[in-house]
Computed example of a mutant assay.
Amino acid sequence: MHKTTAWPLALAMICLIVYASLYPFAQWRDQNISPFRFLSAPLPQYWTGFDVAANLLGYAPLGFLLALSALRSRRVRWAVTAAVAVAAVLSLAMETLQSYLPSRIPSNLDLALNATGAWLGACFAWVLERAGVVDRWSRFRARWFTTEARGALVLLALWPVALLFPAAVPLGLGQVFERLEAALADALANTPFLEWMPVRDVELQPLVPIAEVVCVALGLLVPCLLAYCVVRTLPQRLAFALAIVLAGIGASALSAALSYGPDHAWAWLDLPVQVGLVLGALLALALLPLPRRGAAALALLALSIHLGLLNQAPADPYFAQTLRAWEQGRFIRFHGVVQWLGWLWPYAAMGYVFVRVSRAERPRGSEK
């Protein structure tokens, strides 16, 4: 039996919704009014099509994943109703908490749109189940993936989303050292512990072209190796690696289009990046026959090198300007959702492959 990936993806979606709904988590205050007052308030006089679409579509994936996880487990009789109820309670909790945030305005219209979006997503999952698509996916998954593929599939599903957060180096996820250093220095300011922090002799230096090539190549190779840990046959690995390459390029182009405009969607594709993409694809092709346990071990090594190189470089000025544009523009919630994925995805992948490598060998005749 395969464990469904819909449930952990639903949990991840809930975490992202909570973050996007309560961002920036600052200046909490009590207005001395009931936090549920917005429920009986008149409908908002000002709204935009973007707000309606964001609230409607933002909860549709959650409703879909909750209903799908219930349908796959066969434990919840009323899957659509249960999914909508959970999503509606979550939306009510978020709107209520927004009453204590000066930068957010709770709205009964948002609550209705969130619940409607969840209902649409849940109905879509129910239609797919009735049409037999869910069963066909189960058979497809049994042919393509090992029985313990859920963790890898969740990480691979989140990887293109993580790439939407602007990266200083294309496909370079997990560049957190400079931010952590600054945050720690701010937290320890005016305390004797500030002197305990190590002091660098020189400032972080930008990556030289060869280091950028290696970072891009490893950034593409890591998800391929992650897939090799759970995909069964050589032709299936080849097809999956091709899909990963296309998804990585497409997500990076979409990120650039959102950041700089559609005319600059391919501005990131300079010569070092092109060489890195080709090198990463060739390495993924050469490592197709690698055993699953070997793929996990090599992924752990690739992640260590990738993060080590990436975190020795600073964010360039253009990258900082990009972040300010996202943080000050209408992508504020979207930025808040994906920035944590961009920072944490490689560390979650490192934990996953570490567990696979350290797991005891299975008896002969079982899966590697």
Rank of each mutant, 00 (worst) to 15 (best):
T5Q: 15
A6S: 14
A12Y: 08
M13V: 03
L16T: 03
V18I: 15
Y23N: 11
P24G: 09
Q27G: 05
D30W: 13
Q31P: 15
P35G: 13
F36M: 15
L43M: 15
F50K: 01
D51H: 13
D51M: 13
Y59L: 14
S69E: 02
A70Y: 11
S73C: 09
A88P: 01
V89L: 14
L101I: 10
R104W: 11
S107T: 01
T116C: 13
G117K: 10
F124N: 04
A125Y: 03
V127D: 07
V127Y: 12
L128E: 08
R130I: 03
S138Y: 02
F140E: 15
R141P: 01
R143A: 05
T147N: 00
E148G: 01
L156C: 06
A157L: 11
P160T: 05
V161L: 15
V161W: 14
L163Y: 06
F165T: 04
A168R: 05
G172F: 05
L173M: 10
L173F: 07
R179Q: 13
E181C: 11
E181Q: 14
L184F: 09
A185K: 11
N190G: 09
N190L: 12
M197H: 01
M197E: 04
P198W: 06
D201G: 04
D201T: 03
E212C: 04
V213Y: 11
V213A: 12
V216C: 10
L220C: 03
V222P: 04
L226Y: 00
A227Q: 03
A227N: 06
V230M: 02
P235N: 07
Q236C: 05
A239V: 07
A239C: 09
A241E: 11
L242C: 08
A243M: 08
V245H: 02
L246P: 06
A247V: 00
G248F: 06
A251L: 11
A265H: 04
W268H: 03
D270Y: 01
P272S: 10
L277G: 01
V278F: 12
A284N: 08
L285S: 14
L290P: 06
P291T: 07
A295E: 03
A299D: 02
L307S: 02
G308S: 05
G308N: 13
A325Q: 07
R330E: 13
I332Y: 12
F334S: 06
G342F: 10
W345K: 01
M350R: 10
R359G: 01
R362K: 08
K368H: 00
